[in-house]
Simulated scan of single mutants.
Amino acid sequence: MYVYLLTNPAHTVLYTGVTNDLQRRLYEHGQNLGTAGNFTGRYQCNLLVYFEVCADAVQAIGREKEIKGWSRAKKEALITTTNPEWKVIDLQTWSG
Rank of each mutant, 00 (worst) to 15 (best):
V3I: 10
V3Y: 03
V3N: 03
V3D: 01
Y4N: 12
Y4V: 05
Y4E: 08
Y4M: 12
Y4S: 05
L5G: 01
L6Y: 13
T7C: 12
T7G: 01
N8D: 15
P9L: 08
P9K: 08
A10P: 00
H11Y: 07
T12N: 13
Y15L: 05
V18E: 14
V18H: 07
V18K: 15
T19C: 01
N20C: 03
N20P: 02
N20L: 01
Q23H: 11
R24W: 06
R24N: 13
R25I: 01
H29D: 09
H29E: 15
H29G: 09
G30F: 09
N32A: 14
N32Q: 14
N32F: 00
L33T: 13
L33E: 12
L33V: 14
G34K: 01
G37K: 10
T40W: 04
G41A: 06
R42G: 05
C45S: 07
C45K: 02
C45M: 06
N46G: 15
N46M: 08
N46A: 15
L47A: 07
L48W: 10
V49Q: 09
V49D: 11
F51C: 04
E52P: 04
E52L: 15
V53Y: 11
V53S: 08
V53K: 15
V53N: 08
A55Y: 00
D56H: 10
A57R: 13
V58W: 00
Q59T: 12
A60M: 04
I61K: 12
G62D: 05
R63F: 05
E64G: 03
K65R: 13
I67N: 03
I67Q: 02
K68E: 08
K68M: 06
G69S: 10
W70K: 13
S71L: 10
R72D: 00
R72G: 00
K74P: 02
E76M: 09
E76P: 04
L78S: 04
I79G: 10
T81G: 00
T82R: 10
N83S: 12
K87P: 01
V88S: 05
D90F: 05
D90T: 14
D90V: 10
Q92T: 13
W94V: 11
S95N: 08
S95E: 13
G96Y: 04
